[in-house]
């Protein structure tokens, strides 16, 4: 089957779903690794040590990006659902969302990567 060439709304919806599932999967994993503490501090420390690995650090930026996009996009949809008249501006609103996303991502990425660059 070929791909339907929907607009910004379709792609932001797909991204909303993907980031939502991604954050949920992380949350489940995080509950599991935190639960290891019941087996003793050694197990817990060994797993938490994994998060200090550079690859995990980069993946954490992805996690932050997912949460941020999901939150901003959810806010945009909520605003549109409450103030229906704004729907005619849904494309500029998405652009504004992306600007806010970028503005938040640049310093956060720097802060999260800085320990790796030292």
């Amino acid at each position: 089957m070929s791909r339907y060439r929907g607009g910004i709304g379709q792609w932001s919806w797909i991204l909303h779903r993907v980031t939502g599932v991604g954050v949920l999967v992380f949350l489940c994993l995080h509950i599991l690794d935190t639960a290891l503490v019941v087996l003793g501090p050694d197990h817990y420390n060994a797993v938490i040590q994994l998060y200090r690995h550079p690859v995990f650090r980069v993946m954490e930026i992805g996690l932050f990006a997912s949460v941020l996009f999901h939150a901003l996009n959810g806010l945009r949809i909520t605003i549109l659902d409450v103030w229906v008249g704004l729907m005619r501006f849904h494309k500029p609103l998405f652009q504004l969302e992306m600007i806010l996303f970028a503005v938040a991502m640049v310093p956060v990425t720097w802060i999260m990567l800085r320990p790796l660059l030292r």
């Binding site: 339907y4 709304g9 379709q10 919806w13 549109l80």
Partner: peptide, 9 residues
């Protein structure tokens, strides 16, 4: 409806 706007387009 998930407010996707494909219908409007």
């Amino acid at each position: 409806c998930r407010t996707i706007f494909n219908c409007t387009d």
